[in-house]
Design a binder for these strands. Structure first.
Lengths: 313, 313
DNA sequence: CCGGATTCTGCTCATATGAGCAGAGAGCCC
DNA sequence: GGGCTCTCTGCTCATATGAGCAGAATCCGG
């Protein structure tokens, strides 16, 4: 076992082996290899930096804290949650969002949510009793017309139930054909009350949609494929709360935006706790738009999306 | 960032993340997650044990110290070197053997070696100046008849040259047809002198051969395929220094063994520093025989072979 | 519901460890 | 060769950490 190692990298490796595999003390290692314990310590630090020693946390619910820190710093977010890649990515990200919501302090009295598959997943992953008396408010329309109508309302109801609180649904279409109709609906007492609560929510939890023919807004009949194609031509990268935005986070079609019912983008921007949940390659462009334009304060996503967001642009 | 985690495993994961990814102190982590620092420490230990935290040393010349320890303990070896799996396994193991020899203290004044591909590889990987004046003695015959005659002698010469010493070759066939001839050769002054030095070497470095038609002893014409097949039928698993052994490390054919020139197995067993270098699946049975029967004091091998050796038998 | 066993808790204290520093050495430009 | 910077070395010292312990909590078979 006595040894005098010549090659300095080899020395580092041997030290790492003795320290991490055999867990000897740095002092002992120094004695064995004939170097001072400080050198051992320094070499160990370098081994970790150079990646000779790789420390990995193996768990489906593990997070990528390095990426999270970078996201916070780069985009001035209050928080970021990045999960490692997995088979069922949507589910893992939804779980992470659920965990985040559960751990969120102060617990929001009123939580504004959008709807869609992602939000529904989050709802399913929330534990019963994640809060004790939250009011959940839908912040964008779409209940009635939606084929997935069931889902849209049950999402809110489920989140509320598990948080031992009430759900407040927004009884309105997502987009109206005429501006007058939209104004009229907005001024209806029931709708106005909901929108008012939505505007004053303590936190928002929402996802974003991709601007292509598969969009739910197309699927549900609010828009035709041609409309979306036209929006894309104008620079749309996706939608947030039913509102199509460009890469800078601005509405691509102000007229359309005017006819969309629900919380406005500026109101969302004004919030201190707007949580974006987004996963998957298709959503990279929207995610980038939302994060860079300050539409969210917290982002929950997967490591690939995080890496894309962090690419020098 | 504030959080109160319920699920205990989740807590462990979060702690591991904060400790290893963010390198916060256990104290800080305790404060963040609302647990005592001792609990943090204990959970961290468990995380490592349970494999939630995996620490890996990534380097071609890294070793598997856990397996090495087990080998030492199980078989009463003075030492063991186990290298991770790689493309060029033979080369990695040879490198490891070369490293081991270089680091061996006290430096042997006389080193006995066998010959073959493995030993040749080791010779190539030794650095010039690995020792300062070693005498290298061949411990088994085979020089003259061997097609690889060049290799056999150059191996010894190269090891000696790089150790700034002299090589002593054994000028004899490996196996003789008649016992009388063998006795006669052995009593020849030149041969006897070499065998004497071989018997008194400070350390031995050798490999082992597989008992099948591909054996060098067949290739070189000492044995016929039928002979090897017969030996296998009698229980041969491979050869050490040209001597065929069974799973218990005993000669399978005493008559044949008698006619084999070179260091005897008992002499090898008596040595305090007999280093076996062995790699690859084909050699698992011989490796097992050698290691379990006390023919070696040190084994240098790959992790798969090590795992096989450590299997409960 | 009870005792016994096992696990969990918070603690003390000795030890291991890294930050920071000043001097030594190596490389390098003139 | 002389001065310059940059890295490397061995050190002091404050701090982080784990072993070991005794009491608390929990589990479990009767």
């Amino acid at each position: 076992m006595s040894a005098l190692i010549t090659d300095p990298e080899m020395l580092t490796v041997r030290i790492a082996e003795l320290y991490y595999d055999e867990n000897k003390t740095q002092d002992e290692i120094g004695a064995i290899l004939g170097v001072t314990r400080w050198k051992v310590g320094r070499l160990l630090t370098r081994a970790r930096e150079k990646g000779i020693v790789r420390i990995e946390i193996v768990h489906p619910r593990a997070r990528r804290l390095g990426a999270e820190r970078e996201l916070r710093e780069r985009f001035g977010l209050t928080d970021a949650v990045v999960v490692p890649l997995a088979e069922d990515l949507r589910s893992v990200v939804a779980q992470a969002a659920a965990d985040y919501l559960t751990a969120l302090r102060p617990v929001p009295r009123t939580l504004g949510i959008s709807w869609g598959r992602t939000l529904d997943d989050v709802a399913h992953h929330l534990p019963t009793g994640w809060a004790n008396g939250v009011n959940v408010v839908q912040i964008n329309g779409g209940v009635s017309l939606n084929k997935r109508a069931g889902t849209a309302s049950t999402t809110a109801v489920e989140i509320a139930r598990k948080g031992r609180g009430q759900a407040v649904l927004l009884p309105s279409p997502a987009i109206l054909e005429r501006l007058e109709t939209k104004r009229a609906i907005e001024s209806d007492r029931t709708v106005a009350a909901v929108l008012d609560r939505a505007a004053r929510a303590d936190a928002y939890l929402y996802s974003a949609g991709v601007a292509d023919e598969s969009s739910v807004l197309v699927e549900t009949g609010y828009l035709r494929q041609e409309d979306v194609a036209e929006l894309v031509r104008k620079g749309a990268v996706g939608d947030v709360l039913g509102r199509y935005i460009d890469a800078n986070g601005n509405p691509v079609d102000p007229g359309l935006d005017e006819r969309t019912v629900g919380l406005g983008l500026d109101e969302l921007r004004r919030s201190a706790t707007a949580i974006l949940v987004v996963a998957g390659e298709a959503k990279h462009p929207v995610a980038r738009a939302v994060v860079t334009s300050g539409l969210c304060d917290v982002v929950v996503t997967d490591e690939v999306t995080a890496a894309v967001l962090l690419e020098e642009s």
